[in-house]
Each structure stands twice: as structure tokens, then as C-alpha cells.
Design a protein around this nucleic acid. Structure first.
Lengths: 317, 317
DNA sequence: TTATTTCGCACAATCGTTTGTTCTATGACA
DNA sequence: TGTCATAGAACAAACGATTGTGCGAAATAA
């Protein structure tokens, strides 16, 4: 096998040149599997997202992949299908593959399996959502603030009956947004009507079904606050099917700005999340933990401010 | 290390039970790195796409990941950034990581580096585009047919000056679509005006810039055929900025149906590609090559029929 | 009871790289 | 000229799983 190693730590002036030439000539690349076995590090990061087909996650995946590659790491992509037992399997799979670290957008509300997992020594960084009682660093949008911004706008436009179609109950991103929704109503002296808070996951179907139900109410809301891009997509479909127009008949504000948001039938007012910043910082925090560059007792808990993009999907009452 | 292997080929009735219990108890998972080194297979597939943030590719990535995982394979996700030298690097990286196979949505027009690469024994399957003079299997949409369907519709609606904003020149997907555009014009006795064929990549910016230029022409087109979802997004932005309406002022048809296509200001008529089918079959063809289940002299060259979804973005003239 | 067969386990080699140790040869200094 | 220091190269061990080989014990048959 010759000694293609000489290149690095014992530079023998002549030999190294010969070696380098030969290496180039035969297109030699070190076997990273063997390297991984010997070094007990694979320069590999596992990425688990609930739905890679969702633009929100695929945008972040892109940035994460690029930022990781810059640092010599490759990405194992895993889609948990928004299914908690799949997520558990994937964590074990990634552990068996000896990834150096994991970036996880967790699925469910329970954090036990993640806490348990993080004890095995593989660093984990959580994005998008956070787990309240863990020592796992996270980086998310300040969802509470985002919801407040959106609701302040809706109320400032004169709406008084505002529904909220929420995502998966119990997870931080959802709870913080709902809390922002409620607090803003209260701060504006509007009683919270819990029957106007509907929905139970972030998918398109939830938006569709719940919007239909909302519109059938005796006292339908004049505005809907959709807590994800897919929910608003479903709500738009329902509204469109009912022959109603946004914002003339009903107003809509969505979480997550999208490339097409400005180009919809009614350009959508959205809460934009800093996806790139979340992604880049998640990678960097993880790399710090992997390399041990930072005191691991410091648990980063970062919330990035979102930005309300006001377009034309909210009617002035 | 005990012998956790007994489980498989020499079942010692008592011992195996003990082992299995112990394995479960200590939460033992075989080290896949060591396994990979010994077996010279990693149960790993490399996936290279030009832009994972593009819904078209992220949808396929999702299906590819799920289908691969079903078969015990994990996915190395790589984004080539639509950059050919990045693509070359990624191929070498994946080779060094000893992936068992690669699914590649190639970037450029040249196929030399891919031909060269495929000689090293790692099976490659190409999606979305194909390389004319190679022995590499591919599976794509029948882009020619899709373009013909779209153009037939546009012409049937009475348009006579139809522009085409194309993507990356030279690659099969683009050339086939342009050929469909031209042939359909010819078949309908309309002379092809080459100055109406503009653009040079699949990005949003191309759509924006070229649509602006097209609208400034002395004899502007009454319809635009956009050869990708991003191009149509850019074109919509340009049209919207110009204060024009689709389809009243200008008609637009796009390749690639999107979740939001029906919900746009003007519900978009699109050519829908069977992304899931392409993804599933790509995985299966690759797995057949990896396992040697199929005669490798058979080079699959598969074109999936697209479907024209007629909505309301084309005006009847 | 002895011989033979078979079953099951222990042991060793292997994959390709890294890294620590040993060995040889060269050059310098006394 | 002899000794020592050191550079450079050869060698060996290790990472953890797989897999072939060899050996011991048990079981069956003579």
C-alpha cells in the first residue's frame, strides 16, 4: 500500500514529492471508511427533518449541507415523516453509522428519547423547535414574537374575530405561536375564544379541513392566522373552493415566507423566518461541540427574531 | 466483543437467546463503519442534486430517501449548486466515502467526467436529465412530449406569438423541451422566431430578467412558455411588477407542477412531472445494479410521460 | 466402551488507514 | 576513526465487524 501518509507528519523532502505525484496520477483518495474506523470520527453529520419536501426544511437543508461541506463534513439526510417512532429509529441508525453529530428538527412533543440518546456522546443540536427540559442546545425562530407581530398587524387592521389554525399541539414552536396569538388578543382587550383555535398538525390537510369548518361557523372569523406555510396553503385551497376571495371575504396571515408568497392570488402577509441564519448557526454550534472547541456546559439556546412581511392578504375593516 | 454474529448463520439454540437478550439490553447496534470496511459495502447511496431547495428536487429527494431506507440504505445528500466543478468534487467525495451507488441529477452539458467516473465501478443512475452518449442508465420525464402538450394547448387557445424562456442550454431536459416547442410551432404552420427563445438557466432570476425583456419588445408575445417552476416564478414577478395580469395581458404556462400552482393569482397551467415515480424507479434501478440482480449490459433508458394540468393562466384569444 | 461424526464455540485473518515504535543509515562531532 | 544523534523508512498495532478454520465436547452408532 506504500505509505501515502508521509505527506502529512514527516515530510521527507524527496519522497513526499514522489508520493504526491503518484497519488495524483492514480487518482488516489483515502478510504474514508477505514479512516473513520481508525480515527473514530467520520466527518459526517446526520440531519433529521420531519419533511424534506417542505420548502422550509429543504432550504435549511441546503444551507446546512453547504456549510457542513465547507468544514469537510458530509450530510446523512433522514426524513422522519413527522413520525416519532421513525425519528427514534433514525437516531439509532445514525448512531450505528457513527455520525459525529446530529442536527435534529424533532417531530413530537416528547423529549425522553432524545434526552436518552444524547447521553451516548453524540452531540445533538435542535432546530426549529426546542425541548424545554433538556441540556440540548437549540436554535429556533422566536415564534412568540413572530406570532405577536402577525396578530398586532391583524388587529391593527381592525379584525376582532381572528381564528388560529395551529400545528402539532405541544411542541414548542406551536405553543409559542399560540401563546403569542392569545397574549396579543388579551393585550388588545379581546377575549380569547378557544373554539377559534383549531388544528393539530402542520400539514396542508389541516389547513384545508379547518378552514372549511371555520367558514361554516355561525360567526365566522374575518381573519385566519395560519401557523405554517402548508396550513395556509390548505386554507387557501379551502377558501378558493368556497368561492371566497382573500382578503375581500376573509383575511389570511401565514407563518413561513415562501418564494411564491408574493405571487399568490392575494400576495400573502407572512412571518419570515431567518432560515439561513438558523442553519448556519446550527452547523457551527454542532461543529464546536464535535471538536470540543467550546465548553460543553454552555448550552446554547438561541432564538432568532422573525420579520413580518406585510403584503395584501389582510383587509382593512 | 463476544460473538454477536451467532445470531445469523449458526444458530445455537441457547446461546443465541442469551446473545439477543444481551444485545437488546445494552442497546447494541453493529458499527456500520467497521462493517463497511470488512464487507466493502456501506449500504449508502449518494444523491447529488443541483438545488435541494428547489421543490422539484426536494420532493424527489424525499421519495428517494424513503425508498432507499426501506431497503436498508442511507442517503448522502449533496447539493452541487448547479456548478459542474462542485459536481466533480462531490463525485470523488462520494467515491472516497465508498457509497454503493449514486443517483445524480447532473448539472452541465458535458458528460466526460461522469463517463470517466462510472468506470471506477460505482453504479450511477441519472435522473431528470440524460447524457446522450453514455452507458449510464437514466430516468427522466419525457420532456419533448411535455413541451408538445403545453404548446398544443397554448396554440389551441389562439396564441400565435409565443415566447419560450429556457433553462440551461445544452442539457437534455432543456433541449427536448425546446425541440417540443419548435416542432409544435412548425406542425401548426407557425414559423419559429429564434429571438423569442431566451434564457440560459433554470433559476428564478432568468425568468424575471427575460420576462422583463420580452415585455419590452415591439411585438411582445401573448404567451410565455416557462421551462421550469423557478423560471415561471421569476416571470410572474416581472409581470406583476409591470402591472400586467395573467392571463388577461399575457399568458403563462410552466413546467413542473407545484403545491401552490393552483393557488396563484392566476391558477397556473403546468406540465406535471411524475416525480415520485422517477424517484422510486431510480432507486430500484440503482439497487439492481448494486446487488448485481440484473444484467448490467442492459442500460435502462426510461422516459416517464408528463401530464398537462390545465388551469387558468392561458387566455383564449 | 470406543470410535466417528457433527455441532457449536474460540480463534485468527482481513478490510485500509492512522500512529506509535523500532531499525537502519547517514552525517556530525569529538 | 569511533560514537552519538537523528532523519527517514519500515514495521506493527489498533479500530470493530465478518468469515473461514480448527478444536473440543457431545451425541450417535458399532
Amino acid at each position: 500500500m506504500l505509505n501515502g501518509k508521509g505527506e502529512q507528519f514527516r515530510i521527507s523532502t524527496q519522497t513526499s514529492e514522489i508520493i504526491l505525484k503518484a497519488a495524483a496520477e492514480y487518482n488516489y483518495f483515502p478510504n474514508r471508511i477505514a479512516r473513520g474506523l481508525r480515527l473514530e470520527k467520520t466527518e459526517t453529520i446526520g440531519l433529521i427533518v420531519p419533511d424534506i419536501a417542505n420548502q422550509f426544511f429543504s432550504s435549511m437543508a441546503k444551507t446546512i449541507e453547504i456549510e457542513s461541506r465547507k468544514n469537510g463534513y458530509s450530510i446523512f439526510l433522514c426524513d422522519s415523516l413527522d413520525n416519532i417512532s421513525t425519528e427514534k429509529e433514525l437516531l439509532n441508525l445514525l448512531a450505528a453509522r457513527k455520525v459525529d453529530g446530529i442536527i435534529l428538527a424533532p417531530v413530537g412533543t416528547g423529549s425522553d428519547h432524545i434526552n436518552e440518546f444524547s447521553k451516548n456522546g453524540i452531540p445533538v443540536v435542535i432546530i426549529d423547535r426546542y425541548l424545554p427540559d433538556t441540556k440540548i442546545p437549540y436554535i429556533t425562530t422566536d415564534n412568540y414574537l413572530g406570532a405577536c407581530q402577525a396578530m398586532e398587524h391583524i388587529l391593527a387592521m381592525g379584525h376582532r374575530v381572528v381564528a388560529c389554525i395551529q400545528g402539532l399541539n405541544g411542541i414548542s414552536a406551536n405553543e409559542d405561536r399560540v401563546r403569542g396569538y392569545k397574549d396579543t388578543l388579551n393585550n388588545n382587550s379581546i377575549a380569547v375564544d378557544n373554539s377559534l383555535i383549531v388544528g393539530d398538525d402542520f400539514g396542508e390537510e389541516t389547513g384545508y379541513v379547518q378552514a372549511k369548518l371555520l367558514m361554516k361557523r355561525n360567526n365566522p372569523p374575518t381573519a385566519i392566522f395560519a401557523l405554517s406555510n402548508l396550513i395556509s396553503l390548505g386554507a387557501m385551497r379551502a377558501i378558493s373552493e368556497s368561492g371566497l376571495k382573500i382578503p375581500d371575504d376573509i383575511s389570511l396571515v401565514s407563518f413561513d415566507d415562501q418564494p411564491y408568497s408574493a405571487l399568490l392570488a392575494s400576495p400573502m402577509t407572512t412571518v419570515e423566518q431567518e432560515k439561513d441564519e438558523i442553519a448556519v448557526r446550527a452547523v457551527n454550534i454542532l461543529l464546536e461541540r464535535i471538536t470540543g472547541a467550546k465548553d460543553e456546559r454552555v448550552i446554547e439556546k438561541i432564538m432568532i427574531k422573525p420579520k413580518l412581511i406585510i403584503r395584501k392578504s389582510v383587509r382593512e375593516m
